[in-house]
Design a protein around this nucleic acid. Structure first.
Lengths: 352, 352
DNA sequence: AGTTCTTGCACCATCGATTGTGCAAACAAG
DNA sequence: CTTGTTTGCACAATCGATGGTGCAAGAACT
């Protein structure tokens, strides 16, 4: 349907209707009217006209003039993941509460795509950019820097501006230790029975691996290299790694440290092809939290990263006058099996 | 750090550098230069200057002039959910492939918030709006209509413009039938042993319930009213409903039709407070797909809605010259227990 | 009454890109 | 050499909001 809408009202329309000048109308409607010594009665008239004509400012025009847009960007690897989508959810709430408009875009963990996406956002004159889980944060930094855009890293650190990330080393330690303790009753774990799958050569994975190895050494006395299998993040690569191990040994390791829920999906794909009974003695630790995963038929210990904490901290740091490129660590939380935590969803009104 | 970036280059900068007029520069860089009979060599010069100075057009200026922005909006209830976040992911890919910029925003299933959010998006002169899962699609319609904005409904239908939704009646039937069949071996199900939990008085829930009741009648010969418990979408309301039932009967119904993964989380919360062994004879059908839920210790049959199909159809319909406010049904898919399907994630490059 | 403030607002340039129009120079036709 | 045509581009208005500057009318004061 060729939308029959009348054109939106502008300050010029209201200026004619009210008999004032456009600048007066503008001042009244953007709140600077006191500074301009507009009479209360004039302001009142204009406000009521704006109301009845459903006036809303054209943000492109305002943004053009003021070279600000009211848009705040969040650059994600993907939407389709519980961790990142809860980032989006939390981010949105923060931005909204500042009276601005969130714009969330994903860039598929591809450095080129990341830069291109940042450039696109910049062409819309966004006011700030939160760079989350970027493969190449410093590459995005260059683009932002050239445009004079405030920005900050989340989840994966860069070296040029502040970063707010999970304490992956501590998280890795906690998770590894929890997996090992889980076996204390059923029979002690040998070093070669505890494997780490997933992740790649990024800061988060490296730190988790470092924590994993440290705790293995401390508690199991050894830490063979072959127990580290950084298969990337794609579920199918993880699946292939599990298949390969299974093909070779006829079973999985009893203890698994899985680097993310996405990698965990790879484990599920592997399991779909094998009878359920093969995995009774399994303990999985997963560096991510998902309520359904927490109730699987084998013990699943999970790490929940403090998304709210990270976003809050990031908003705090980005406002600083002279932010140093340091790394702010946020503590994650260990989640025992069969735990259904509440989340951002619980803030929903459910009108019945 | 007070970003030290130089101002971005404009067509005026390039006009000075190239010795051409701003309009010539503009024409060259936006592709209309042939129409304006600009010499190839002039165009070449300007293009190379644009390249070396990293020129990108200011979209606010362009949008102001042309009253288009290149932004396409998606209004979601929430991000933090597998179904909706895969909507976002799929939507984004489609928009990107059209050379435009996606802007995804959530409105918490709140009609007022929905309208306000639509108005905000309109103030940025977005070019089209996809309204997904809105509580009050026709309310949002009014806002769009008044602004002359093309829009379309997804997931929950409105009456004023076309809607693309899942065939919830058929999905409800498929899922109900699958649950019932699941009991054929272990002992036939009585009508009062199959309950539906979750959802509220929206089109999707009504259709699913209609399908549920029809199949129950056909296969079990009866369909008591008390077996329908539309507890809303909030996980905790669902939990309370399960607690109430459990308190009264000392067990859960053997067959559960859960209206969404969010409601399913309510079931998990309930289960977290009860020993695992109580739920061995349980079969759950969930109207949503989640790979982890699919591998729970009891059979979970799921419905996967065809997100790609819905988004594609929506893009097709929204381009139509005179779209009628009809409803386009997209078939969902039944997913047997212990199934790990691939999704949008698998399109990810995983650079190693 | 004349001077100085204060009040209340209008005027206008500006942000950067788009686009309708106009017009010289180059070229072709007669 | 004159008249028409085409080529190649410059000019200027425009989109809607912002904010610096200027100025008339009224109030206050000597």
């Amino acid at each position: 349907m060729a939308s029959s809408g009348k054109k939106k009202a502008t300050i010029y329309d209201l200026s004619v209707l009210s008999g004032s000048s456009p600048s007066t109308v503008s001042a009244v409607l953007n709140g600077t009217w006191q500074k301009r010594r507009i009479k209360e009665s004039t302001a009142e008239l204009i406000r009521s006209l704006a109301e009845t004509h459903q006036y809303t400012a054209n943000r492109q025009a305002r943004g053009l003039r003021s070279s600000r847009s009211g848009l705040i960007g969040l650059l994600l690897p993907i939407h389709d993941n519980r961790y990142f989508s809860s980032m989006a959810q939390t981010f949105e709430a923060h931005v909204r509460s500042k009276g601005q408009c969130p714009i969330v875009v994903s860039a598929s963990r591809d450095p080129k795509e990341e830069r291109k996406t940042a450039e696109t956002l910049i062409s819309y004159s966004i006011d700030e950019l939160f760079i989350c889980g970027a493969t190449d944060p410093d590459g995005v930094h260059e683009v932002c820097e050239a445009a004079g855009l405030k920005h900050i890293n989340i989840d994966l650190p860069g070296t040029k501006v502040p970063s707010v990330i999970s304490d992956n080393y501590e998280g890795g330690r906690m998770l590894t230790e929890a997996i090992i303790r889980r076996f204390q009753a059923s029979g002690p774990l040998e070093p070669h029975e505890l494997y780490l799958f997933g992740g790649r050569d990024d800061h988060a994975s490296r730190e988790r691996i470092r924590g994993f190895r440290a705790v293995k050494n401390e508690l199991l006395g050894a830490d063979p290299d072959e127990c580290i299998q950084p298969t990337g993040y794609a579920p199918n690569n993880a699946r292939l790694a599990f298949e390969a191990f299974y093909g070779k040994h006829g079973k999985l390791p009893r203890g698994l440290f899985v680097n993310s829920s996405i990698n965990f999906e790879g484990l599920l794909r592997f399991m779909a092809g094998h009878p359920h009974e093969n995995f009774t003695d399994l303990v999985v630790g997963c560096y991510d939290y998902d309520p359904f995963a927490s109730f699987l038929p084998f013990p699943v210990i999970m790490i929940r990263q403090d998304v709210e904490g990270m976003i809050s901290k990031a908003f705090e740091v980005i406002e600083e006058a002279r932010p140093q490129p340091r790394i702010h660590l946020i503590q994650p939380e260990l989640v025992q099996p069969r735990t259904a935590l509440t989340g951002p969803l619980d803030a929903l009104k459910d009108i019945e």
